[in-house]
Design a protein around this nucleic acid. Structure first.
Lengths: 343, 343
DNA sequence: GATTATAATGTAAACATTTACATAAATGAG
DNA sequence: CTCATTTATGTAAATGTTTACATTATAATC
């Protein structure tokens, strides 16, 4: 069943059928009705591949993320897909994993599918080393690339992100202001944005004039689901004599691990230990007490990213970088003085 | 840049270029090398739409799920995508939401994209009423449909599922055996599988000969992220005088809510209240104590589903229904007697 | 009613592949 | 060296749309 069959049945040319199908205004209402009836009657669905060939697009957009089962990334994918679909786009999803080789492969796969755009979800797609981002720049020369939570200065690459530096600095400063001077910074990613967060933390110490020991910056090298691993990691640090009265975590799951650590060691929260997470995800609500966390406005970011994307695809002039501010959401694991808006 | 350009540069016909591209064995090694060189040199990527038109497939498979930001569904999508990609398929993801109308729309959207198969992720796609499943059956007449965690007897529909009935019955029976006779069954979905779980619970009471009050089966009508809503819901029940010494939850988030409820009311877990979740997700590890939960082998289910799918697409004869058994994973919120394997 | 402008429809080319079939080249057997 | 067989390559049709351009029908103007 193709457009010729329909045209024959309806007694019109294929051009007219095509026009009806595409809602062209230049069709006599009676003709439109006649054609529509035949289409309905036969349950005809136009061939999307032929359409793609003719128009050089199937209105599909590639979404890459390292691991869509990650709570945060999954939410991002959800928001992005939902927004794109409203504008008539379909999403091809690829979970690339965290290894460079696989990211590269995933990207080229999307390009060979001739997607209209590529959206890279997650800060892990941009590495601190420029040469590691070549593959993105090269892709961008063919197809516009949109980065969520990452920054890359390159033509045809559009970034939508939160100011992680400022957010982390602000959170650390709030802790320092409240009198906690030994904040353990716990992180699990050395991505561009991971390093920005770390810098924010360091900057808060700088600004306060307090000394910062390297021991207070700890990298947890484990799975993103291994909460008890985080807990043990902290227990080990404590046994090694490290003293800290706050944990500032680069991800909520690390903060959850810190809560467990505190409970095991009978450390009172927030009196003896403050904990701040990052992302303000569902995990913060599972814990008891609920975890103070930095909310980086994922939903806002995603809808802005999609807006930028649609704009670019419509040929509009769009800003290459949009930056939002994150917000510290106060819950039960901190007792901070009035939040100071630091510029 | 198309196949003609390449053929001209390489001094061969387009058929030969096509053969090289598709790894046909009937190409002289020297020719292959020559063509490959030109392809590399020009960075030629074959047009996927034209290929799709010629072959009537773009090797893409539609994945529908209600909400890919749901922890459990996100994991399923991840496993399925990863497995499909290994076999060379791309995934078009649509988050349909939970409403019938939108599910229907999502499905027809996938069909009009001419996917090779549709995978419906989540028990919510099959409703207890047969007429509500017409849209699936109708789709199946065009394209094979694969259901995860749902059951529908219809040609060209293939189900991969866990025996939720047995799993829930078994968990309830274990609680009853351990001496807890007032188990609150807490659920938040009336999907087919949701009702199967409920039946399992009821069956355990039946088998034990104990009476079962309707008040012990409670439907929580709220968001899947509203943990404190669950907590309040339980507090209200308690205030209304409902007595229960165990909560058997149809989803982990409900169990987390139960933990919060217990903490607020200073109810000791597991001594005064046992809690069992469902899915054995990350949430069970966030809670303290960690939550005993029914693990329905999501990873196994997903890889089996994909195996079935690939088999069907390869024209092999595949079983229309594959059922696995779930497993109760004992953690800190129960103290059960030796687990009895009930058939 | 003729002329012009506009609206509706049709024709045919273009999009870039795959593949059945035809043909040419290479290899092997006698 | 010839003929048969296998291997390699080429030709042309088929896939199902969209759309520029051509043509015809309709409406508007005088």
């Amino acid at each position: 069943m193709n457009i010729y069959d329909i045209s024959k049945q309806a007694g019109v040319s294929i051009a007219t059928v095509s026009r009806v199908l595409n809602g062209s205004p230049n069709v006599k209402p009676a003709t439109r009705r006649k054609v529509m009836d035949i289409i309905e009657q036969y349950g005809y669905i136009p061939n999307a591949f032929a359409r793609g060939l003719g128009l050089d697009t199937m209105n599909s957009i590639g979404i890459m993320c390292a691991d869509s089962s990650d709570l945060y990334l999954a939410k991002a994918v959800y928001y992005i897909e939902t927004n794109l679909r409203k504008s008539g786009y379909n999403c091809i999803l690829i979970c690339s994993g965290y290894e460079h080789r696989n990211k590269e492969e995933a990207l080229s796969r999307l390009l060979s599918q001739r997607v209209d755009a590529v959206i890279m979800v997650g800060s892990n797609y941009v590495e601190p080393e420029i040469k590691d981002n070549r593959y993105i720049m090269s892709a961008a020369s063919q197809t516009p690339v949109f980065l969520l939570n990452a920054e890359l200065d390159c033509p045809n690459v559009f970034c939508t992100m939160c100011d992680d530096f400022k957010a982390t600095r602000s959170a650390a400063a709030a802790l320092l202001n409240s009198g906690v001077t030994d904040i353990l910074y716990l992180y699990n990613s050395r991505s561009y944005s991971g390093m920005r967060k770390l810098s924010g933390y360091q900057s808060a110490y700088h600004m306060s004039g307090l000394p910062l020991s390297n021991d207070l910056m700890q990298f947890f090298d484990g799975s993103r689901e291994d909460i008890s691993g985080v807990c043990h990691f902290l227990c080990d640090l404590r046994e090694q004599g490290l003293v800290f009265h706050a944990v500032l975590a680069a991800e909520d799951m690390l903060a959850v691990g810190a809560i467990k650590y505190a409970r095991i060691n009978r450390i009172a929260i927030p009196d003896e230990l403050s904990v701040i997470g990052y992302n303000n995800s569902l995990l913060t609500a599972c814990s008891d007490p609920e975890i103070t966390s930095i909310d980086n406005k994922l939903e806002t970011l995603c809808s802005q990213l999609v807006r930028t994307c649609i704009g670019v695809l419509n040929g509009e002039d769009m800003p290459p970088k949009v930056i939002y501010s994150a917000e510290l959401v106060h819950k039960g694991t901190t007792r901070l003085r009035e939040q100071r808006q630091d510029q």
